[in-house]
């Protein structure tokens, strides 16, 4: 019985702290009526406050725990951030594609497909650039001139010459890249600026270059 009293005394200052803070693992003796006591080995050692006795008295313990968890969280965030490099060594997205007159009307140019992953299509009214990445899972579709369509070898998605999807699992049309005329009169393509059909962006300036030269 005596140790129970000393426990109570021990708990007095702790109670205030507990009230202010978030709920902590309950201190053992709160119930007023003495319950049948657990066997000795199921109780903490007598007079041992345990490590979770957080109170004003052991502010340093609290600070220690906060420091510990703070460090764990900060280093987790740090290592996650570490996996996102600042500089990428990838080919530039923006490039010049030569003079517009080099393209014939109705042609799907595969000249930049290997290196830059775009097709440049010239129609009677002008140019547009399709990014040669299947919208399904990123394979490189093939241009089949005889069928007048793009066909993806991975899962059989098909796209019309305009980039519209019409067969297979592709969920949306091919993406278009920015086309413009550079200062020196060459075609300029910028793959980092994309135009998505489903967001009605194909009508925006840059998605289509008017050219009738």
């Amino acid at each position: 019985m005596s140790d129970q009293v000393s426990q109570e005394v021990n708990n007095q200052p702790a109670a205030e702290a507990v009230a202010q803070q978030a709920p902590k693992p309950a201190s053992p003796q709160i119930s007023p009526s003495p319950l049948p006591r657990k066997p000795k080995q199921d109780r903490p050692p007598e007079g041992d406050p345990g490590i979770w006795r957080l109170s004003r008295r052991n502010l340093l313990t609290l600070a220690g725990w906060m420091g510990f968890f703070g460090f764990i969280i900060a280093s987790t965030i740090g290592s996650l951030r570490y996996m996102f490099p600042r500089v990428l060594f990838e080919p530039p997205m923006k490039f010049k594609a030569g003079s517009p007159s080099e393209f014939t009307i109705g042609e799907v140019s595969e000249r930049f497909k290997d290196e830059k992953r775009v097709w440049i299509v010239r129609e009677r009214e002008g140019f547009y650039a399709l990014i040669s990445i299947c919208t399904h899972l990123g394979c490189t579709p093939r241009w089949l001139p005889s069928d007048n369509k793009f066909k993806c070898p991975c899962h059989g998605s098909g796209f019309y010459k305009t980039g519209m999807n019409f067969e297979g699992p592709a969920p949306r049309p091919l993406e278009r890249a920015y086309v413009g005329i550079a200062d020196d009169g060459q075609l300029e393509i910028d793959r980092s600026i994309k135009f998505l059909y489903e967001k009605n962006e194909w009508t925006k300036p840059g998605a289509f270059l008017k050219y009738t030269g």
Binding site: F84, L88, E90
Partner: peptide, 18 residues
């Protein structure tokens, strides 16, 4: 494309040396 979960896996925007 340069900050999502795929970017972490690949270390770039496409399957490359990283």
């Amino acid at each position: 494309i340069d900050n999502d979960v795929r970017f972490v896996l690949l270390g770039g925007t496409e399957v490359g040396p990283p």
